[in-house]
Nucleic acid binder design. Structure first.
Length: 455
RNA sequence: GCCGCUAUCGUCUAGGGGACUAGGACGCCGGAUUCUCAGUCCGGAAACCGGGGUUCGAAUCCCCGUAGCGGUACCA
């Protein structure tokens, strides 16, 4: 029964913290689902928890969405701003008798359960007290089944659910009620969200039924875990979108990697541009088991994307990350480093010597500046002083015969030069590095190294 | 406790009763590229949670167990 009607999905984060990787993947899947079929994405901020919701968090989430380049068609809509709608629906349920006020506290419910058994949901007594919380009547018999696009039908016995609270004594509504009302009112056709909501879905279905609304279709995504199998958190390294950005990852690489966490193609394609993701993604194809976030693979994928960038794009990305001008100098530096870095953050270590004096890497110096290092540096220095043009090709031409002249392996000549001009043992190709540094500065640094070796 | 979900190499996954000698990718190990690192190329080790069924045949279907995870708030 294929349905060609464009879908309408929503991403509904609660602004109680930064946007985590799990939330980012949920956002991405919703976005892919919407873009795939020409549907719409609604961004709704679930801010009914007035204690924990903050403006800063909302701003941070929006910022993360923008960085990921995930746009939305409607919103951001504040759930709290829809209080009138919620109150109306609440009154409807009160009037019809589907919900009732109950003065029982959490402790009372606990006591009730101790008496009636743990497999039995709480059932309360209606009160005329207008300040009491509102509970929804849950049937004692039968079951509520969630027809999940990913898991198939999942049944929950009604008996095991409490007559749950849908509104506080002061009239403000609770999550499971607000979500059900909003999804229905906003015409959401598919709810794609984390698996942690699966057990709450029957409650939302019960609300929808009581209100006489047709339920949306549901798809519950497997959760994301850290390397230790536990729920993802800060101690697992980069856990929020913000941290991924700071670590120097490209948005396109993050989208590709996140898409692969819980979803795969049947032909094993791994590297995919976003257009291809959009074209191939289907929620129905999402897997059922939790996935572990592995930064190693993200790093590799990021390197792939970095190397595919044009030099201009690459330089712009590096400039943005480093907070520098994308000038000719940086562009030249990027040109010799592009093939070597996996993240934007790593680029600096490779090109730093072009902007600052050599670093002080004692280990590199101790390892390289011995044996024939002095002779190698002196021979190289005079060769470099003579060369007519100071481009990579010419530099190579004049340096190339030196190892043989000295009867040394190439590494014994090039490594000392590398340490002399960069201070450390890792850098872009030595000829390119010298050319980029320029003759004067190269000679100055080699002279300094020679002087130090002699002392 | 109760309700529910999940289970293929270390990790992400392909597979949906015979095409499985279980494929790919990351990572790891070894080799090549005779300047480091990275990249690239080649090769290698590495998995169907356990036990019962069903069937001529099970990684694939069913049951039980085990483990992990989620829910069980006047949080979202």
């Amino acid at each position: 029964m294929p349905d060609d009607t464009p879908i309408r999905v929503r991403f509904a984060p609660s602004p109680t913290g930064a946007l985590h990787i799990g939330g980012a993947r949920t956002a991405l899947y919703n976005w892919l689902a919407a873009r795939h079929g020409g549907g719409e994405l609604v961004l709704r901020i679930e801010d009914t928890d007035r204690e924990r919701s903050t403006e800063e968090n909302v701003a941070q989430i929006l910022d993360a969405m923008e960085w990921l380049e995930l746009d939305w068609d409607v919103g951001p809509v504040s759930q709290a701003s829809r209080a009138d709608l919620h109150a109306e629906a609440l009154q409807q349920l009160l009037d019809s008798g589907a919900a009732y006020r109950d003065s029982a506290t959490a402790k009372d419910v606990e006591a009730w359960k101790a008496e009636h058994g743990a497999d039995r949901g709480y059932r309360g007594e209606p009160t005329s007290d207008d300040g009491a919380a509102v509970r929804l009547r849950v049937p004692d018999d039968g079951e509520t089944v969630v027809h999940d696009l990913i898991r198939g039908p999942v049944s929950f016995p009604n008996r095991s659910y409490d007559d749950f609270v849908i509104a506080r004594g002061d009239g403000s509504v609770l999550y499971n009620f607000a979500v059900a009302v909003d999804d229905a009112e906003m015409g959401i056709s598919e709810v794609v969200r984390g698996d942690d909501h699966l057990s709450n879905t029957p409650k939302q279905l019960l609300v929808l039924t009581a209100l006489g609304h047709e339920p949306p279709r549901y798809a519950h995504l497997p959760l994301l875990h850290g390397p230790d199998g536990k729920k993802l958190s800060k101690r697992h390294g980069a856990a929020s979108v913000q941290e991924l950005r700071e670590a120097g990852y490209l948005p396109a690489a993050v989208r590709n990697y996140l898409a692969l966490l819980g979803w795969g193609t049947d032909d094993d394609t791994t590297v995919m541009a976003t257009e291809e993701l959009v074209r191939r993604f289907r929620v129905e194809d999402v897997g059922r088991s939790a996935a572990i976030f592995d930064e190693k693979k993200l790093r590799w994928l990021n390197g792939r994307f970095m190397r595919e960038l044009s030099l201009d794009e690459y330089t712009a990305a590096v400039a943005r990350h480093l907070g520098r001008e994308a000038d000719a100098r940086l562009r030249a530096a990027c040109a010799i480093a592009q093939e070597k870095a996996q993240t934007l953050e790593e680029v600096w270590a490779l090109i730093r010597f072009l902007f600052e004096p050599p670093v002080d890497d004692e280990k590199a110096w101790a390892k390289v500046m011995k044996d024939g290092a002095l002779a190698a540096l002196e021979a190289s220095r005079s060769a470099l002083a003579e060369v007519s043009a100071f481009d990579a090709e010419s530099v190579e031409g004049v340096l190339d015969p030196i190892p043989e002249q000295l009867g040394a392996k190439p590494g014994k000549v090039y490594q000392p030069i590398r340490v002399a001009i960069t201070g450390t043992s890792v850098s872009p190709g030595i000829f390119e590095s010298l050319a980029a540094l320029g003759r004067d500065e190269s000679l100055t640094r080699i002279d300094a190294a020679v002087a130090r070796l002699r002392s």
